[in-house]
Design a protein around this nucleic acid. Structure first.
Length: 960
DNA sequence: ACCGCCGGGTGCC
DNA sequence: ACCGCCGGGTGCC
């Protein structure tokens, strides 16, 4: 412990006891102190190397921290040191103090460090066996603008920083096996930095192509009622192994008697603390929730199932607590006979423990000696006795015992700094820990409850407590007696620092659902998450990397992947090298991630067979003939538009007038669906207009195109535009895409399409889902269209054949959905509608209604093409009608996947309506071309894109 | 620390 | 000798 260290020096000085006491009460271990300091660790981004210095570490004999040759050390300011306010402490990777920086140098460094002028990093190359002092190579890193100040201030005190790319080069290791290539491109050209593109690809691929689990499969405990799919059994097996096996964490190897970390060069006598847990990063829909529930029930202690009480009579598996029923109205979990179930069980008459779960490891695995004592207790028939045994076992194991730690203190044992909390509560199995804490976003809370109900045998009494709502039970004793406690990130972070019971419990397991939501390490939520005490930690996420390597730190820190849970080591060994495009850094990152992550995608295979086999999917195109009057109007507008575009093509101004072109195309596409969709106000770009007016009108046209719901393409990412912004020159891009263009080209930034100057200040935001005025359509009399007729014909036929089949009717144009409501109502179809204008609550409501299998549940969902994220689950439908083609075939695919996904029982039939002899047909051709390009996976140049766009337009308008 | 520094013991060769 | 020299005690910040 921190204060113990000081004792050696302080005992002689009565007055410093005050100081000692202060630290005693806060009882911080050094590693915790460093971790706390690490939250203020400057971001490694954009810092440059100022230079190196050879310094001296003194006072080695007073501390137990050891270092190996080439090992990195941490330099921590100690402004409270009573002997020298300038003191700089030296600690090894594990946070064990090694010594101090010699005082003269410390004085110089203190100024630089305290004013945040530079971050000083140390590496020890020699003298690690010395008794009294050892040399240390210091490197100074910081912002370019601080360089001179730092150099001068060091020089003033007689320390000249060596700026040459010298032999020592500040790297902590120069051998090729290690990360010695860190820092700066070596002159020998050993490291060729990755290009920005390669770097991005590396990030994107970080979670791809991970080796599939070699652990085989594991059956879930009997209490799990749902049979697991093969890949879920695999995941369960992997998760159990990660919790039980003591495989060395990444980069650790055994060298003789010692354990050695090849990245940090740290070695230890003890087996390094393993990461019990990891990241389950399976794709959406592969059953992460079910797998986690299985883990909870299957792997209690020492690989044995959770001891659960079963009742002979059937009742709701969950003890639905008051909050659960009151909070989640509409959730099916709250109902039924839970009160009856409670009383049944509490009376105890029918209480019985299933034989196979009583035995808590009669054959203990090779666990710690302390663990053995605990598990050798006899199996019991009584659940209550069993728990007492466990408590007793915990006492034996000494997890809370004071005597153990006192012994350690006096014996001056090496590992004191690893921290009492972590070394004891986590190294040895604290068999009294029972509860799994699940933290999730509010939006999936009810899903967890439903899934527990759905997948746990109805005669098993699993105590699941929803820690949510103002009436929640904050008793630590109560919470830690539960099997599962579920709460939200918001509740967790609001309790943090406020004598939070959640932080006072030693959890058996903490599960972060949608773990990627925790990203910013400075956020209260992150701190709250990191501060939880648990033996095992899991992160569930369908999208583990959202932006960059930076986000990963939070995940690894949560998992306590030593030593990278301390930001400094993470920055030095992983993040900075990776950001600088060093292959070694990226590779190390990849290795780390691989070791702790299981990720399968829908396309992954198990033993050569697809992970999940979905029912068939058939896609049909149904050609629609326009009526004579529709055709006449279409041809009239087509001719007009063709002439305008022809002129643009001749003038070479297609791209400059792109918004107008889009508007013309839009009008034609709308005509194919329904004549009333065409906006009446689309004024012509009159010849009399000034350039400024012209631009205004172009932008206005683009707004209308976007507002109608059309799925436009961003020319930077070539994908559907996300968070659209409109440039001054009336082109639309994803905000992040254009922001990147502007930041890379700086002042000279130009529109990728027309090369006009673009400025951030001139970008026009466009709200994602703008509400449309529907007044115009309502005032007029409703009329039909050929496409409406085509759809209704299909729907009526289907109702005769099989009235139980549910349909998705999809359009990009929300106003078209509105038009469709009239005939649906007329024919007595019960339907719901889901579009972008709806809030979260409305969406959930509608989805729930539609997904319901009740007899009177809606048969049709009117769905706007882009509504809802990838997570939108509409498996109740097995028939899809795509009313109009999208530019981007992938968008249509995603939409279809909302019903053609895990959980779909029927074969899926998709009908695409395409108007014969119209832009729609041409769009389909272009879609195919795009698909080909995607499949060829090429990188086209900007010029290619521009010409191909013009080609597209010509093809669409049949100008060729 | 196989050093440097401090301070007491000592004092030609 | 108000010195030099010797040798023991001692030692981070």
């Amino acid at each position: 412990m921190f204060s113990r260290r000081w004792r050696f020096g302080f005992d002689r000085f009565a007055e410093v006891d005050l100081f000692t006491e202060r630290h005693e009460t806060s009882a911080e271990t050094l590693s915790q102190a460093i971790r706390a300091a690490a939250s203020e660790e400057p971001d490694a981004d954009g810092s440059v190397l100022f230079g190196h210095l050879r310094g001296t570490v003194v006072g080695l004999r007073y501390y137990t921290g050891v270092v190996n040759q080439g090992e990195m050390v941490g330099l921590v300011r100690q402004p409270q040191n009573p002997y020298d306010r300038n003191a700089v402490m030296v600690a090894n990777v594990y946070g064990n103090q090694v010594g101090h920086i010699k005082k003269e140098l410390a004085a110089a460094m203190a100024y630089v460090m305290d004013n945040n002028l530079a971050k000083v990093e140390g590496v020890v190359h020699s003298g690690t066996k010395n008794t009294f002092t050892m040399p240390v190579n210091l490197s100074f890193w910081g912002k370019e603008e601080n360089k001179n100040t730092v150099m001068e201030s060091m020089a003033r005190r007689g320390y000249k920083l060596n700026t040459g790319v010298g032999i020592q080069a500040g790297a902590y290791q120069t051998s090729s096996s290690g990360p010695g290539a860190r820092g700066f491109p070596s002159k020998k050209g050993l490291t060729i930095p990755l290009t920005a593109e390669e770097l991005k690809n590396a990030f994107d691929n970080l979670f791809e192509g991970l080796i599939e689990s070699q652990d085989g499969e594991k059956e879930a405990a009997e209490a799990v009622s749902t049979p697991l799919l093969p890949h879920q059994k695999q995941a369960l097996s992997w998760m159990c192994a990660r919790e039980n096996k003591s495989a060395l964490p990444p980069f650790w190897e055994k060298r003789g008697e010692l354990y050695y970390n090849s990245l940090t060069c740290f070695s230890a006598k003890e087996i390094p603390e393993r990461v019990r847990g990891g990241i389950l990063a399976d794709d959406m829909g592969l059953g992460k929730t079910l797998t986690t529930i299985s883990l909870i029930l299957t792997n209690f202690h020492n690989g044995k199932p959770l001891p659960v009480v079963t009742c002979e009579k059937q009742f709701s598996p969950m003890k639905a607590k008051t909050q659960m029923s009151s909070r989640l109205e509409g959730s099916s979990s709250a109902g039924m006979s839970d009160t009856a179930g409670d009383s049944l069980c509490s009376e105890g008459a029918q209480v019985e423990v299933t034989p196979d779960v009583v035995e808590i490891a009669d054959e203990p695995e090779k666990s710690t000696s302390k663990g053995k004592k605990a598990v050798k207790r006899k199996p019991s028939k009584e659940a209550s006795v069993l728990f007492e045994d466990l408590d007793f076992a915990a006492a034996l194991s000494g997890s809370t015992s004071d005597t153990t730690s006192k012994k350690k203190k006096t014996a001056n044992v090496t590992q004191l700094h690893a921290g009492v909390k972590s070394s004891i509560a986590e190294n040895t199995d604290d068999l009294s820990a029972r509860t799994t804490l699940i933290i999730c976003p509010l939006s999936v809370l009810s899903n967890w409850l439903d899934q527990f109900e759905q997948h746990v045998h109805s005669n098993v009494k699993l105590n699941v407590y929803l820690y949510y709502g103002s009436e929640r039970n904050r008793s630590k004793k109560f919470l830690s007696s539960q099997d599962v406690v579920i709460t939200t990130y918001n509740v967790l972070s609001s309790e943090f620092g406020n004598k939070s019971p959640l932080h006072g419990i030693n959890w058996l397991r903490v599960v972060l659902d949608e773990g990627h939501v925790v990203r910013n390490p400075n956020a209260q939520m992150s701190k709250a998450v990191l501060d939880l005490k648990a033996q095992r930690r899991w992160i569930l996420s369908g999208t583990p990397i959202q932006n960059s390597v930076k986000d990963l730190w939070m995940l690894l820190a949560f998992l306590r992947l030593k030593p990278f849970d301390v930001r400094e080591w993470w920055n030095r060994v992983i993040q900075r090298p990776a950001m600088h495009g060093e292959r070694a850094g990226m590779q190390n990152l990849q290795t780390l991630v691989k070791c702790i992550t299981l990720r399968r995608t829908k396309t992954s295979e198990v033993n050569g067979r697809p992970l999940v086999s979905l029912p068939d999917k058939k896609v049909y195109v149904e050609q629609v003939e326009l009526s004579q009057s529709e055709r006449e109007e279409y041809e009239r507008i087509h001719k007009e538009g063709k002439n305008i575009i022809k002129r643009y093509v001749a003038e070479g101004t297609v791209l400059r007038n792109y918004a107008d072109v889009l508007a013309i195309l839009m009008r034609l596409r709308q005509l194919c669906c329904h004549p009333d969709l065409v906006a009446k106000i689309l004024s012509d770009l009159g010849a009399a207009a000034t350039p400024a007016e012209l631009r205004e009108r172009l932008i206005e046209k683009l707004r209308l195109v976007l507002a109608s719901g059309s799925d436009e393409e961003c020319s930077v990412c070539l994908d559907s535009v996300r968070l659209p912004v409109i440039t001054h020159c009336a082109h639309v891009y994803c905000r992040p895409c254009i922001a990147q263009v502007i930041s890379t080209e700086q002042e000279r930034a130009r529109c990728p399409l027309c090369r006009s100057e673009i400025k951030t200040s001139e970008l026009v935001e466009f709200p994602q889902e703008e509400l449309e005025e529907e007044s115009s359509t309502k005032s007029e009399r409703w009329r039909t269209s050929s496409k409406v007729q085509a759809l209704m014909g299909n729907l009526l036929r289907l109702r005769c054949e099989d009235s139980s089949i549910k349909c998705l009717v999809v359009s990009q144009f929300t106003r078209f959905l509105t038009i469709l409501e009239t005939p649906l109502r007329e024919h007595g179809f019960s339907f719901v509608r889901l579009d972008g204008s709806m809030n979260q609550k409305q969406r959930t409501q509608v989805i729930q209604e539609f997904q319901s299998s009740a007899a009177d549940s809606p048969v049709i969902m009117l769905l706007s093409l882009k509504a809802g994220g990838v997570g939108l689950n509409l498996t109740a439908a097995s028939r899809v009608f795509l009313m109009d083609p999208a530019w981007n075939p992938a968008t249509e695919e995603q939409c279809i996947d909302r019903c053609h996904r895990l959980g779909q029982k029927k074969k899926v039939v998709v009908t695409k309506f395409i108007v014969k002899g119209s832009v729609e047909e041409n769009m389909v051709k272009i879609q195919r071309k795009k698909q080909d390009l995607v499949e060829k996976a090429f990188g086209s140049t900007n010029a290619d894109r521009k010409t191909s766009r013009i080609d597209d337009i010509r093809a669409l308008m049949e100008l060729c």
